[in-house]
Design a protein around this nucleic acid. Sequence first.
DNA 1: TTCCGTGCAAACAATTTGCAATAGA
DNA 2: TCTATTGCAAATTGTTTGCACGGAA
Lengths: 145, 145
Amino acid sequence: MSAQRVEEAIEAIRASGSRVTVDRRAVVEALDRSGDHQTAEQVAEAVWVHHPDVNLATVYRTLELLEKLEIAFHVHLGHGPSRWHLADDVHHHLVCEGCGRVIEIPDSTFDPLRKRLLDDTGFVIDPHHFSLSGVCGRCAAKAGR
Amino acid sequence: MSAQRVEEAIEAIRASGSRVTVDRRAVVEALDRSGDHQTAEQVAEAVWVHHPDVNLATVYRTLELLEKLEIAFHVHLGHGPSRWHLADDVHHHLVCEGCGRVIEIPDSTFDPLRKRLLDDTGFVIDPHHFSLSGVCGRCAAKAGR
DNA sequence: TTCCGTGCAAACAATTTGCAATAGA
DNA sequence: TCTATTGCAAATTGTTTGCACGGAA
């Protein structure tokens, strides 16, 4: 979708002193194309659409590099494998333990909690890495009856 | 520490129609003894102190049973394996991505966020299953310099 | 006696790693 | 050229499962 953020990522790789390879570009493009919440396996599948010869281990290694460069991050949504996204898709996740639905919420929702925890404990939360679990309205209603 | 909560757990197993076995009692006692944040492997080690013949698979199966009966739960703290605790040790976790330190916070800290999310989205959060990650005061100070 | 629970070993899923071949800068 | 990157296959880690035996109810 955004050629620009792909180019920015590529530039960041180059700037870090790492090499810009066909495989790395393919992973960045796949992340850009396939949107949020993708597992490493799904990222690989998106890569394989255009570059069928990229090895799965290379996808893992590239994701690791991108995370070190703060270009991409992973989140834990419920059980199962990590989910990956580019850095500018910043939002948070509520995962329903009933139906598995994922609700996205804006970062600002965490501001009061963030302030409270900072004041109480000095801890600066970064809620990207983990999701919150619970029960969505629909499943709560179902359970309530 | 608490013989009482062990007995309550045993009673709940019996009440559910499951059998009360030596192995299951050993797992409950190990959880009770070894406190919070233990991996399945660590629970097994605690079991083996008094019952060296209990199989690791049995520990996993028992933890699964205890979770179904809401006697014990697992949380995801940072990367790595799940951590287990008995149900009445209810509190939440801040995991420092710098030093790995775990800070425990009371459930009530989440009340405003809980209300906000319930009002906005109908979602009832249960922050037990996942921790919050971030950077502790000490590491933040270190990074700030 | 009747199943449920267990040990054992193998299967599994997600991820990481060692090493030789290859390809960016 | 020279070293970082890759493919491949095997190792690792955490967890689950199938099956035959043994023990709780």
